[in-house]
């Protein structure tokens, strides 16, 4: 049972991956990418957790703190993640303007008929 949460994380990760492969809709692909991303965040944060530990803010009378290093890493990753999401969504809007569609197969059809 010691790895239970890692397995759930892998399940979530694979759910995001599956959405990215199977779905033809570009917005849904980005949602899948974000689910994938968030599951990796959960994995890193759960690595930092320590038994009987508290949040890494120094207070009197506590000896165990969860590791602050994964937290810092993931803070940066969240912000970078939203930046990439914003860029991807902007691309989707542009694609929609050019092709009048956000469905992958319709865009492929239009590209073939050029």
């Amino acid at each position: 049972m010691g790895h239970f949460n890692y397995w759930i994380v892998i399940y979530l990760m694979m759910a995001g991956f599956y959405i990215m492969i199977v779905q033809g809709n570009l917005v849904k692909k980005i949602v899948g990418l974000n689910i994938f991303q968030a599951s990796i965040f959960i994995m890193f944060i759960s690595m930092g957790k320590v038994e009987d530990g508290t949040a890494p803010i120094l207070v009197e009378g506590t000896t165990y703190y969860s590791s602050p290093l994964p937290h810092v890493l993931i803070l940066t990753a969240i912000v970078v993640g939203v930046a990439t999401t914003a860029l991807a969504l902007a691309l989707v809007v542009r694609i929609n303007e050019a092709h009048r569609s956000v469905e992958e197969d319709e865009i492929h059809e239009q590209d073939k008929s050029f």
Binding site: V27, I30, V31, N34, A38, F41, I45, S46, G48, K49, G53, T54, A55, P56, I57, Y65, S66, P70, H71, I74, L75, I78, V79, G81, V82, T85, A86, L89, V92, V93
Partner: peptide
């Protein structure tokens, strides 16, 4: 999981800004 700083960043940036951007795209 004791990651309070990450929690509020995720709530603001992940749930707030990302969702808003996706709604705008929709």
């Amino acid at each position: 999981l004791d990651a309070v700083d990450v929690a509020f960043t995720e709530a603001v940036v992940g749930a707030g800004i990302s969702t808003f951007l996706m709604l705008c795209t929709l």
